[in-house]
Write a protein that binds this DNA or RNA. Structure first.
Length: 127
DNA sequence: GCTTTGACGTATG
DNA sequence: TCATACGCCAAAG
């Protein structure tokens, strides 16, 4: 999943540090698109460890300047409790970039990148 | 070490 | 579309 083309100090996606890889994968999600925890984990070389991504985000400080709001559950639901401040914040940020959020959920069929996140990350063309 | 706890995922009904 | 069950694994206690 994680291929090499440049040293990890240039491309954090291949860093020996798991945290760095996860952060890099999240940072690579384009504006107006979303990706699932599982997809992020997989692209960071941690298949099946979506919970680790969630744990990381929970501990991520505000000043981290990371598009954390673009990370959703595999079914499109926001992972935060619907009555929490973070939930409303996430809705606001998503809508601000054109992503429709209805009933705490996003239509992955329209905004999801799960199937093509690698393509986005590594700049590989279609076909 | 063992147990519990998750910003989760997949399978099944 | 919802609910339940089970898998997963790093951290915290």
């Amino acid at each position: 999943m994680v291929r090499q083309s440049a040293p990890y100090w240039v491309n954090p996606l291949i860093s020996p540090d798991r945290h760095a890889r996860v952060y890099a994968a999240i940072a690579a999600i384009p504006r107006g698109r979303v990706a699932s925890y599982g997809a992020i984990a997989a692209c960071a070389g941690l298949p099946g460890r979506a919970r680790l991504v969630g744990k990381l985000l929970r501990e991520t400080p505000e000043g981290m300047l990371l598009p954390w709001h673009r990370v959703l559950r595999a079914n499109g639901q926001l992972a935060l409790p619907p009555d929490s401040v973070g939930f409303r914040q996430q809705c606001r940020l998503l809508r601000a970039e054109g992503v429709e959020v209805r009933k705490g959920r996003v239509a992955l069929s329209r905004f999801g990148l799960d199937g093509s996140l690698d393509r986005v990350l590594w700049g590989k063309p279609d076909s």
